[in-house]
Amino acid sequence: MITPATLDRTVRAALEEDAPWGDLTSAALLPADARATADLVAREPGVLSGGDVFAAAFTLTDATVEVDLHVADGDRFGAGDVLASVQGPARSILTAERVALNFTQRMSGIATLTTTYVDAVDGTGVRIADTRKTTPGLREFERHAVVSGGGSNHRRSLSDAVMAKDNHLAVLRQGGHDLAGALRDALARLPHTTHVVVEVDRLDQIPAVLDGGADTVLLDNFSLDDLRSAVALIAGRATAEASGGVSLDTVRAIAETGVQVISVGALTHSARALDLGLDVRIG
C-alpha cells in the first residue's frame, strides 16, 4: 500500500526534479489567468494503476486544480477511453503533466503486464507474485501496480522475511554449516511469525530445507519435470514457489505442475510504460 507520506514525498521529489525553478515555458508563454481542461486518454488498451498518484501530481503543484478520476485502479480500459479529467490554471496543469503521466504510464504498464500473467494461469489457483527487482525509490508504487493487475506482493524488503538464496547457502557451505541445522537455529531465534523462504536449484537440496522447517521452498529454474517431482517431494509440508525463466509462454505449464506461487521479476523490471496522453480540450 502506498502510504500518504510516501505518496507526498515521492511525488514532491519528482515535481522538484522536473521543475526546480518553475516551468519556464508555461510562465513565459501562458497568461497567468489562463485556465484549461484536459483529459487523460488511453492510446491503447490496458489496466489502470496510479490514479491517486496522477491526481497528486496536479494537486501538489496547485491545490486549486481539480482532478476527476473516471476509472479506478485495477479497471480495464480500451483505446480512446477517457480515464480522468483535470481542470484549473493552465500553467499548473502543464507544469504537472509530465510527472503525472510518467507515474501513471509506468504503473499502468506494470498492472497491464501483471494481468496478462494472471489471465494466463486462470483456473489453476496459482498466485502470480512480484519480486524485489523494482526501481529504487519506487518500490511501493510498483508493488501497488502489481496488485492493481491482480497479482500478489512478495516480501516488501530485506527486513520483512527470511529468504535464503544461493549466495547465503554458498556462505554456509563454505563454513561447513549444515543447512537444516542452520535453519533450525535461525527459527529458534526469530519471532514465531517470521516467514522463512529457502531457494534451491536442485531436487537433492529439498529434504534439508524441509527438515530445517522452512515455510516456502523457492524452486529456481527447475524444469517442468523437476517441478512436478519437487511438488511431490514437498508434499504440502511447505509452500512450493517457482521462479526463474518464467515468461508468458511458459507460465501456464509451470502453474500446472502443482506449485502454489510463481514469482516473476519481469512484472516490474521489464514492463513497458503504457501509452497514455493528456489532451487539452479545444473549444
Rank of each mutant, 00 (worst) to 15 (best):
D8R: 12
H269C: 05
G283D: 15
D249Q: 06
T193F: 15
L7E: 13
G137T: 04
A111H: 10
T25V: 04
H144T: 05
F222C: 00
E199K: 10
Y117M: 12
A255D: 08
H192M: 06
L83F: 06
V67N: 03
V47A: 03
R43Q: 11
T10C: 15
V251Q: 03
G125H: 08
S157L: 02
V126G: 01
G51Y: 00
H177W: 04
D75F: 09
V82K: 07
V86D: 07
D225C: 01
A28I: 02
R12Q: 07
G125L: 11
S157C: 06
S159G: 14
P191M: 06
V198E: 02
Q105D: 12
V82E: 07
A19C: 09
V118A: 10
V196L: 10
L267H: 00
R9V: 14
R91K: 05
D52Q: 15
H195M: 11
P136L: 12
I128C: 11
G80H: 15
V171W: 11
R202I: 03
I234G: 01
G46R: 00
F77N: 05
A28R: 10
G125S: 14
L183I: 15
E16K: 06
A214G: 01
T37R: 14
G258N: 05
R173I: 01
T59N: 05
I282F: 11
L94R: 08
A266L: 05
I128V: 15
A242V: 04
G151F: 07
P20K: 03
L183D: 15
V53M: 05
T131C: 13
M163V: 09
R9N: 14
G283P: 15
E17Y: 02
R91S: 01
